[in-house]
Design a protein around this nucleic acid. Structure first.
Lengths: 182, 182
DNA sequence: ACTCCACATGTAACAGGGGACATGTACCTA
DNA sequence: TAGGTACATGTCCCCTGTTACATGTGGAGT
């Protein structure tokens, strides 16, 4: 259901087309909740059926313009305050680490270096985004304020993963432990 | 495909029944890759069809015993070294934060307190698990060594999320910014 | 006016995951 | 020995998400 509320939340900022929403998901929300356009269009028609959004065909340049209704607005708010938070987390990166013992030490080191680089770059990217927000309009609207909070979370856990990958490289791969010279 | 490799990885440690595998997923892997038994049994039969595992019906107490084949073992190894890492991450917690501006300040504070508590508890749980490993057999077998690395990752990002939730409580909810008295 | 391209909206087919339900088996206890 | 309970294996259906494909539209350049 998260996609549904993601759409409602974005529409709470103002009317938008399906294309706009897909773009915003890609640009802002993708690090924490990826969504492709087929799913978005499908969900929009369901939201429309449920009376949570209104559709204005023939918006600017043939775009459809979706606008949130009062029903929709109170539904997001209800979700935010009363809805159970789903804490499910899936990270293939960490799942793999359970099986590191199956890898050759050299392959493992190379793998961890790559992972560290990836997480560091992602964290830096988010940091840059946050910095831009700060220079520009952090503090201007409640939306950008919220955005900053979200970005800060992303920075935090990508940095945590980067640190982990770096630390993992220092963990000795095997355990001689009194192993008599080979 | 991660579930498939998770199963192969666990079976690389030794033969196990479907029930055993489900239990291990629940106890050890669930924080990073939840999986329920229906999925596991289905995947096991697919793995068996693919010749990556062998089934011995009539193991101890009517359990089926699954054993990894050479094909299966080299397939996990291939995945670990050559397979593209899927870095997809979905966190409803953080998605919600994009829409915090829609919440009443009091509700938001309450929400963040709850989140902080949840993440702190999860991190502590993982820490306790790691400590047990250290006291007992950290360093004994390559498997437990890998486990420790995995648990360390979990501690890291749950702690990062806990810190974030704590920090977010200190962010002022609105932006007076020269707002003239009310 | 024509054509091309970026913008924009969709459909179809498939893969993965979760909840509910069904069944069977061994062991323990009354 | 009858019944209960924890162990164990499986099926079914639905929901979510992804990839590939199909279509339509407006504006910019020639």
């Amino acid at each position: 259901m998260s996609l549904r509320y993601g759409l409602l939340g974005l529409l709470a900022e103002g009317p938008a087309s399906g294309y706009d929403l897909a773009r915003r998901f890609q640009e802002a929300l993708s690090p924490v909740w990826p969504a492709q356009h087929p799913k978005i269009y499908a969900e929009l028609s369901r939201l429309s059926d449920a009376g949570m959004i209104e559709v204005d065909s023939h918006g600017p340049r043939g775009r459809k313009a979706y606008r949130i209704t009062d029903t929709g607005l109170s539904e997001v708010r209800r979700w935010l305050t009363e809805g159970e938070v789903d804490h499910t987390l899936r990270t293939e990166s960490v799942l793999r680490s359970f099986f590191f013992w199956l890898m050759e030490p050299d392959d493992l080191q190379e793998h961890l270096r790559r992972e560290q680089r990836f997480f560091t770059e992602t964290a830096d990217l988010a940091r840059g985004y946050a910095a831009a927000k700060d220079r520009g309009d952090f503090g201007t609207s409640p939306q950008t304020r919220s955005m900053r909070v979200a970005v800060e979370a992303a920075i935090g856990f990508y940095q945590a993963l980067a640190d982990w990958a770096e630390w993992a490289q220092t963990v000795p791969p095997a355990i001689p432990e009194g192993d008599p010279e080979s």
